[in-house]
Amino acid sequence: MEKDANNFPLFFLGDRLEFPSVSQANEDGLLAVGGDLSPERLLLAYKNGIFPWFNDDALILWWSPDPRMVLYPREIKISKSMRKVLRDGQFTLTQNTCFEKILEHCAKVERRDQDGTWITPNMKSAYLELFDRGFAKSLEVWEGDILVGGLYGIDLGHVFCGESMFSLRPNASKFAFIQLAQQLEAKKYRLIDCQIHTPHLQSLGAKEIPREEFMEALAK
């Protein structure tokens, strides 16, 4: 175990399938480095409030930020203009019909203050395997027969861990996110894990909560 520049311990994961307590993450939320992207490790991570996020395949970084950005499905905000979009039939929605294409589009999204993409080839392979096992899910937004938006994440059965979304038309990703929230509310899911704050997610009703509160909701 080594320490980072702020004197926080850094946990290096080996071959054992384990993670340290999320309480040991540093002030930025970084908890551990190393390990692998096996389906077993990824599922263990999500079930314990941890997610991978890094810019290359050289070193896997595992995070558990405090506070945590979440959306309670019943609190989804739908603006007047979005209600019109939902009614007018511009978009149609499908689920799990082209998961790999959703991954590819999300990997191309340019994000502020981010060099490159964290959806690396190894990350794509890992999530495709989780999709094959029924844990990773996607929502696809179509304008006619053209894929114009969507999102994907990990479905734990009571919490949906959102990973990424993209939009090639105005409001397409909002359309997918609102539809997801409404579906999960009907199924009585506890929350959607949005991981970190963005103005876009906040505008849709997501908010930051203490990590301890998030972990309580995550626990079945």
Score class of each variant (00 low, 15 high):
E2T: 12
F8H: 12
F11D: 06
P20V: 08
V22P: 13
A25H: 04
E27T: 14
G29I: 08
L30P: 10
V33D: 10
D36T: 09
D36Y: 07
P39D: 08
L42D: 14
N48H: 14
N48M: 11
W53R: 01
N55V: 09
N55I: 11
W63R: 08
V70F: 00
P73N: 03
R74K: 13
S79G: 08
R83W: 10
D88W: 07
Q90A: 14
F91T: 05
Q95G: 08
C98H: 14
C98P: 10
C98E: 15
F99R: 06
E100W: 04
L103F: 05
K108P: 08
R112M: 12
Q114V: 09
T117E: 00
T117L: 01
W118I: 01
N122W: 12
S125P: 11
E129M: 11
E129V: 11
L130C: 04
R133I: 02
G134E: 01
A136L: 05
K137P: 03
V159Y: 00
E163L: 01
F166K: 00
A172P: 07
K174L: 05
K174A: 04
F175Y: 11
A176H: 02
A181Y: 10
Q182C: 08
A186M: 14
A186P: 14
K187L: 14
K188M: 11
R190P: 06
P199Q: 03
L201Y: 00
Q202G: 14
A206Y: 00
K207N: 08
R211D: 12
E213T: 04
E213A: 04
F214S: 02
A219H: 13
